[in-house]
Write a protein that binds this DNA or RNA. Structure first.
Lengths: 243, 243
DNA sequence: CCCTTTGATGACCGGCGGGTCAACTATAGG
DNA sequence: CCTATAGTTGACCCGCCGGTCATCAAAGGG
């Protein structure tokens, strides 16, 4: 009995909404345009969403949740490498993973700045979360003797967060995928040089020599092959270090 | 003959508009509210401005022009000190001056993120200009042998710009004036350590020792005196114009 | 083939707020 | 005091768009 709902409708609407929100922002986006791009009527939009804000909130929550799994604190990586060079490789591989994800979702990233009104608390909370996670990393690195003890964790996290955020902004302006690896290596070295102990800075220099001699990072390969299996990846680092 | 126009009206409207735009953004700001806060009628608003956008544009142009004079390229400072410690002092004093200005105009800074629609090109152009100026400084420092030659000027400028931008964002969240000097010293040292030649990094360390021994910077004092003179001069100039 | 049920449509409603203008008011000159 | 002139007002107009609902269409059961 009765008619069956189009199962693609909601997905198409979400996709269209993502597009239009990214182009126009919350206020500028028109429900009619979202519906038209999804190939359905305006009324159909309201079969799936209570309001325009609801749709944006739904999109945001889903995206931020996916982001969340990428911006993990150090506690989420039980077996972090201790060797400075391996640590650099690991961090770079992790950054590349994150920015690859951001690049894939660049359409979505464009929505965030436009969240100025009723939904901005979501973005603000997310930024605060990122900032706290960055701070955790700085604290961790300081405890591990990688960063100098006198480095102010709050300020360091602010600078790091701002710099990386600017990189993502710059990525959004690019038409083709930038050399994220180069960008992120540069950023990583910048902050390791700035905040690292003299030993760490020396390790950065040494690693650059090694790289310029054509010897690639070992950990980076391991991590990109086994993205999800962190414990195995770190076990690999340790084993190889003894070779 | 005839009635004389209220000379305060436009100024009051601009002030009120600044307030409301800062609180609500372009779209959220209502002409009626601006007029009410200025103590005039809605119609009076349109005696002075063609439209809501015009008012915002006028405010923006004026503010960005004032900003412009602060973000000067190295060419604007003919006699830059060559001694590393003095250079640090000079740069810090300059940064403090800029951020002091930004702090004084923090209400205005809050408007910028909300410029998403018809006026965003102004902000975008301004950001690009800041970025270019930062790049000029990086290039200059590299030419002067203060930054290492292999430092990528574009990426360095991006990171620096992002980090300093984040500092200003964080400043906007503060209720009382933060210790800008500490923040900016931290940021300055961060990037001088990251990009500086080994000699420069040594100078940073040496300077910290000197400062911790209570010996203040000489150049900083000289510059801050000079800068106070300059801001006092412009303030006087404005007061005279308003009389 | 009709009836019921439920998905889908788009014309329509209503409020919001940018912008206008007829009416009003203050001032100066005669 | 009167009149001309120009500043000031706020009620009103109107387009836009979020949200609704009478109406139609599709699917399945009897």
């Amino acid at each position: 009995m009765s008619r069956i709902a189009d199962p693609k409708a909601k997905i198409m609407l979400l996709r269209a909404a993502e597009e239009v929100f990214a182009e126009k922002g919350l206020a500028g986006a028109k429900v009619e345009e979202i519906a038209r791009r999804a190939g359905v009527s305006k009324g159909a939009f309201y079969l799936h969403f209570e309001s325009k804000e609801t749709a944006l909130k739904q999109l945001l929550e889903s995206f931020l949740a996916r982001c969340h799994s990428y911006f993990a604190p150090p506690a989420a990586y039980p077996g972090l490498p201790e060797d400075p060079a391996d640590l650099l490789d690991f961090s770079l591989a992790r950054d590349v993973q994150i920015y690859e994800f951001l690049w894939q979702n660049r359409a979505f990233l464009r929505i965030l700045p436009s969240c100025q009104g009723n939904t901005d608390y979501l973005v603000i909370a997310f930024r605060a979360e990122i900032d706290a996670t960055t701070r955790e990393w700085v604290d961790y690195w300081r405890r591990e003797g990688i960063f100098r003890p006198e480095v102010d964790a709050d300020l360091a996290a602010t600078l790091i967060g701002g710099a990386y955020n600017e990189l993502s902004t710059r990525m959004l302006l690019a038409e083709t995928r930038p050399q994220l690896e180069d960008w992120l290596r540069f950023a990583l070295e910048t902050f390791f040089r700035a905040f690292g102990t003299p030993e760490m800075v020396a390790a950065v220099d040494f690693r650059n020599q090694r790289v310029s001699q054509g010897i690639g990072g070992r950990v980076a390969d391991a991590l990109s092959n086994q993205m999800m299996d962190r414990s195995r990846a770190t076990r690999d680092h340790k084993e190889r270090r003894h070779i």
